[in-house]
Design a protein around this nucleic acid. Structure first.
Lengths: 205, 205
DNA sequence: TAATCGATTCGACCAATGGTCGAAAATAAA
DNA sequence: TTTATTTTCGACCATTGGTCGAATCGATTA
């Protein structure tokens, strides 16, 4: 009963932070504020979390858990064609990237401090997805649909580019430019894996 | 004379921060500390910089200025072959990435707060290098050595992968894995730009 | 030299923060 | 009921980034 109780209380705190995060950046949210929003005393926060950072950590993990898990499950269906599964990965990256996006800040919001959350996010996503995507590519190689000698490296490259570009905080650019880069990635992928031009267009969604 | 004076004083402060940064993380360095290390009063810091963050910004910029500038100059020599110029870019990325690397921290250093410096770094490097690399690729296309339809996208992809992997904080991995990814990138590049396998190996250094 | 004026320096000071603590309240065990 | 344990709380602490007005400096002018 202890664990369960803790779980719900922690989630209560996480909910509060998530709500606050909708219109302020982390650095502008104090622990007292979180406590207030969660309807508990500030001291209690530290009964459930060792530090402010750890709360953020927990929220990031909680947020990514669900969509990532389902994406992983889907992408693991080896009965589906490798490229279709790859499309699922692309989708997951797109979804994840928008999950944490905050609205236009009225104040001269830094967005720079939020960078650290996104970074966590990217790290998590890449490390979780890399083995899955590697497997997919491996399957494609075995089935003769992909010709490439470095499956793991290819997986990592694709994930890095996708994540960085879709996140849009590390290399900020207009939506069109982002699309253009992804188009380039797909084109590179086609030629690099020995597939005809345009055959992977469906990855664009 | 005013500007010059300011310049040197600012550099003095930057030097202090850089030294401090050798064995502490930014978040553990207070403005007073910087002032003390710089041998001036805390108030004076705010005469030259509007905020603590801006000091970090300035340091990042100063650090990257020199190596980036020389790399850009070299890479602009259109008389040199595109691939050789590309190798210069690769070099610059390698150099830059090690510039800010701090030694093993004795304490339970966060490395997480340093992430934000590196992020700035990457941002800067990519935005500075992208046009240069795009030009190089363009030249390669015109000279018939590169066959690819999205020069800017390709430039961005290469820079993102290089920067992220060489930085090694966003997707931490062993040196061998980093090398393997870069090898994969090169292989992808070869096939994607219509060049024979192994022809771009020299990019590995 | 004396007077004046802006540029520069400084550290006491402020509000706010993350985190601690011990005492109270609630809950479970006896 | 009594005892033991878990949970809650907000006053409190040390420290931080940043402000402010007074003091000092340096050059310019008369």
């Amino acid at each position: 009963m202890k664990d369960l109780q803790n779980q719900t209380k922690q989630n209560q705190i996480l909910d509060a932070l998530q709500t606050l995060l909708e219109d302020k950046t982390i650095q502008n949210i104090s622990v007292s504020e979180i406590a207030q929003a969660a309807g508990i005393g500030k001291g209690s926060i530290y009964y459930y979390f060792p530090s402010k950072d750890s709360i953020v950590d927990a929220l990031v993990e909680r947020s990514y858990e669900k969509p990532l898990e389902t994406a992983k499950k889907l992408a693991r269906q080896t009965s589906i064609s490798p490229f279709t599964r790859m499309a699922l990965i692309f989708q997951a990256c797109r979804n994840s990237s928008s999950a944490f996006r905050s609205q236009e800040d009225s104040a001269q919001s830094d967005a720079k401090d939020e960078a650290f959350i996104r970074q966590k996010y990217m790290k998590h996503l890449i490390s979780e997805m890399k083995p899955v995507l590697t497997d997919i590519i491996q399957q494609g190689i075995e089935e003769g649909q992909i010709h490439f000698d470095h499956p793991a490296a290819l997986a990592e490259i694709v994930l890095i580019v996708l994540t960085v570009k879709l996140d849009n905080s590390l290399v900020p650019s207009e939506p069109e430019e982002t699309e253009e880069t992804i188009r380039g990635l797909i084109s590179l992928l086609e030629k690099g894996t020995g597939n005809p031009v345009g055959s992977l267009n469906f990855l664009m969604i």
